[in-house]
Amino acid sequence: MKKIVLLWVFIFASCSSGKLAKVNGVSFVSSREEVAQHHIDPVLHVSANYAAIMPYGFIRDLDSPELVFDTEHQWYGERREGAKQYIEKMHQNGVSVMVKPQIWIHRGEFTGNMKMPTEEDWKQLEAAYEKFILLYAALAEETQSDMFCIGTELKTFVNERPEFWNKLIKKVKSVYHGQLTYAANWDEYAKTPFWSQLDYIGVNAYFPLCEKENPTIETLTEGWQPWKTKMRELATQEDKPILFTEFGYRSMDYTGKKPWLVDRNQMDVNLKAQADATQVIFGEFWNEDWFAGGFVWKWFMQHDQVGGHEDNRFTPQNKPAESVIRRQFANVKESSLKD
């Protein structure tokens, strides 16, 4: 019943405004502990209407087929038990959920480069990954979650094993009956072969925009234009909306140069660059009718203990970028209520 109500809300908002109702989401990071109301309140304070809940599986090396998931050795929020508790708490607060199981490779190796050395290893990985995804697809169905993401930044896996992905999508649809997407990295989404089988073209939007130490709003806006044109063309071609399954910027110098960087560099903190880049992405995309919204990367449970004016990492928490997000999400929420 809940899923039907949400669907009608989505349709009503879309028809009354002439545009898709926007996903104003946060990527809610898994933790060691259960989520409590005081962890949810900051999400509500920025008027987020969606949260990505992200259970994890772990792989040792880029060429290892062994995928470990849902074990007692993992943090609470990384396991099925914890993901379920997070989802239910979000739903109790009126926040919709995308279940987004992800892989972490030891030492933070890029998942898009994961490649098996033999056919036997590929088959072993596929069997493990299918169990991983179907476990959380079943959880998404059980909790009546609003969206499910079948994978994140798995470029080589997708390119090398297309038939596996076609079969996997069919199996997911037999288990979960909500909306589906895949979180393609910014440099793979244009060639991802199965968009026609999903509801959203999911993009992790870490596009390089400029190489300036202190990028201006004008420079960042200009940097978006070629990428924006290509996404609009793909959305039209596939007749599917673009969804930023992840978007965000680090609060550091050169934030528009390589936005995907997750290293522990000592680049000078630049709070204005993060705030400006966040404002530009809202200005460029949130009014487009072919664009569905997105999920800010990333949002930690322990709001009072993270981010701040000396932090050069991704989180916007306790930084000027958080105010930018709050204003944007609140404006969209207010507009949808008026419509």
Rank of each mutant, 00 (worst) to 15 (best):
V5A: 10
A21Q: 13
A48V: 01
M54F: 03
I59N: 01
D63G: 02
V68F: 10
Y76P: 03
E78M: 13
K89N: 04
H91D: 01
G94Q: 01
V95F: 01
V97R: 13
K100S: 08
H106N: 13
G108Q: 11
K115W: 00
E120M: 07
K123M: 09
E126W: 10
F132S: 08
A137N: 10
L139P: 05
S145W: 00
G151K: 14
F157T: 07
V158T: 11
E160H: 14
L168M: 13
K170S: 07
V172C: 07
V175A: 12
H177D: 06
G178E: 00
N185L: 04
A190M: 15
F194V: 12
I201C: 10
V203P: 11
N204L: 08
N204G: 13
E211W: 09
E211C: 03
N214M: 07
E218W: 01
G223P: 02
W224K: 05
W227K: 07
A235C: 08
E238F: 04
K240V: 02
S251M: 05
K258M: 06
V262A: 14
D263F: 07
D268S: 15
L271N: 07
K272D: 00
G283Y: 02
E288I: 00
F291R: 11
A292D: 02
G293Y: 00
F295N: 06
K298M: 09
Q305G: 01
H309Q: 12
R313I: 06
N318L: 12
I325G: 02
R327L: 07
Q328R: 14
F329A: 03
S335I: 06
